[in-house]
């Protein structure tokens, strides 16, 4: 009996995580399409990394998201 429950738990958790992963893909592309966010600009973080290079985000995400609302 226990074994069955574990298999179910295993499959369900994997299922949930897979759905979330796909949800994440959707979320990424949607928020970029709607112009809310530009993820690709973060790629520049590795290139312009002098201490006096301009920062890409000057506010932490928690504050930025407040402004959006």
């Amino acid at each position: 009996m226990r074994e069955e429950w574990r298999i179910i738990a295993y499959v369900v958790t994997s299922g949930i995580l897979v759905v979330m992963l796909y949800g994440y893909i959707l979320y990424l592309y949607r928020s970029e399409k709607s112009g809310k966010r530009d993820y690709e600009k973060y790629g520049k973080l590795a290139l312009d990394d002098e201490i006096d290079s301009p920062v890409i985000e000057d506010k932490p995400a928690s504050e930025r998201y407040k402004d959006e609302k």
């Binding site: 979330m20 949800g23 994440y24 979320y27 932490p60 995400a61 928690s62 998201y65």
Partner: peptide, 10 residues
């Protein structure tokens, strides 16, 4: 939204 919550804070 959930994913925002993750991105929000390290």
């Amino acid at each position: 939204m959930f994913f925002r919550w993750i991105e929000r804070n390290p």
